[in-house]
Amino acid sequence: MIHPMVPEVRRIKRVYRENHNTVTLAVEAAEAAGPACLPGQFNMLYAFGVGEVPISLSGDPAEPGVQHHTIRDVGAVTRALTRLKRGDSVGVRGPFGSAWPIASCRGRDVVLIAGGIGIAPLRPAIYALLRERERYGEIALLYGARAREDLLFGEEMELWRGKYGVQARVTVDSAKWDWKGNVGVVTALLPRVRFDPAHAVAMICGPEVMMRFSVLELKNLGMEDRNIHVTLERNMKCAVGFCGHCQYGPTFICKDGPVFSFDRVRSIFGVREL
């Protein structure tokens, strides 16, 4: 038996430069028919000699032979990863973690709230929903970013809007005078989309503060805790429950998360320094 902290070396099939500090690495999937990856799960990526970090899968889970990882350059390891080229090798472990509740969205409206790089882990959920678009009611995607140059997946957003009738709304925290879009917090977009809070499922991914106020707004609209899903993040070293770093109250983010139904974490969500 191989230790679960030993990565598999895989080749990068393609690199997409998403914006000034973010790339998507399309990495060949495991040779052996490994576990299928579910929307919301993550891999551990190792850049040779630099280190390993958890990166959410950001591609279409149904696309065979490849796994997409959207990575923002924020530290030494992510810097090394964003500098990799097609044909380079990368260490991969995974996929790990829980998934977005796609099945429970059937027959309901779906609200996706993304903040910053948080759009990446939601993208597989969007693919999964759009694959069977007719099964779901309204789909609203609210996406907040720092500034125009940080936005991701702009062209796809047009496709989702045009071809699939997704109510995709984008807002930024601040903008130059020539920006024609929205400026303000992501929750300000909520009144501007159609969905029935009583029969909707919400999935939120972004910084913890942004998720706190998003949950609050959704609850104000009458959504129930069990229909709101959030992703949580903590320091992570092993991804398999051994290292203890990702503990969040009674949960391990790597095993029990990163996606949690809000009713599961409600009692600890507001506790500081947890």
Binding site: G116, R146, V209
Partner: peptide, 17 residues
């Protein structure tokens, strides 16, 4: 006011170590 404060937080910004 709340929204302005949240925007001030720059929650999506990159914080260097």
């Amino acid at each position: 006011m709340e929204a302005a404060r949240l925007q001030l937080l720059d929650v999506y910004g990159v914080k260097p170590r």
